[in-house]
Amino acid sequence: MTSATETGSVRTGAVGIDPAIESFLYLEARLADEARYSEWEALWDDDGLYWVPMSPDADPNTDLSYVYDNRRRIRSRVAQLNTGSRHSQTPPSMMRRLLTNLELLDRDDDTVTVGSNFVLYEYRYDMSVWAGRVIHRVRTTDPERGPRLVAKTVHLVNAGAPLPTMAFLL
C-alpha cells in the first residue's frame, strides 16, 4: 500500500481537493452501492483500470489479482451485471459505503490522485462488512465531460483471507 504516490508529501485534509472531485468520488461510491451499473461505467475514461490486488505490494505483471479490469473488461463486467442473470448479484446486494479520510496524494496537469479509507456494509444473505484503502485517479482536463475515472485501486483489509464471493462493484 506504500505505492510511490503515497510516500510523497501528503497535502493535508480534504482542503487540497477540489469539491468537484470530492463530489465525483461520492457519486462513484453511490452508483456502485445502488447497482446503477451503466451510470457507474459512464464515469470511466477510455484508459480506465479497476484493480483489486491480493496483497498490498503486489505487481500485476507477475502476481494474480482478484480483479484487474482494463476498460474493455470493465465494460464486460457491467454488461454481465446488466443481464439480470449474474446469479451472484441477482438480486443485487444491498450496500452502503462510507468514504473517509480523503487525502490528495498527487496532482499533475492531467489528473489528481486521491487516497481514502472505506467501509462497505453489504447485505445479501447476511450482513458483511468490507473495508480497505482506495486510491482514485481522476482526470480533470475535459470541462465538457467533467471528471473521469482513470484508475481505481482497492486494497481490501482482508485481501489475504479466503474471501466470499464479491461480484458487486467494490
Binding site: V52, L64, S65, Y66, V67, Y68, R73, S76, R77, Q80, R86, H87, S88, L163, P164, T165, M166, A167, L170
Partner: peptide, 16 residues
Amino acid sequence: EGAMGPAGFLIADDGE
C-alpha cells in the same frame, strides 16, 4: 482473473 475466484465472471456464479 477474468474467470476465476470470488469476483470472476464464471466462478462467482458457481459459488452462488
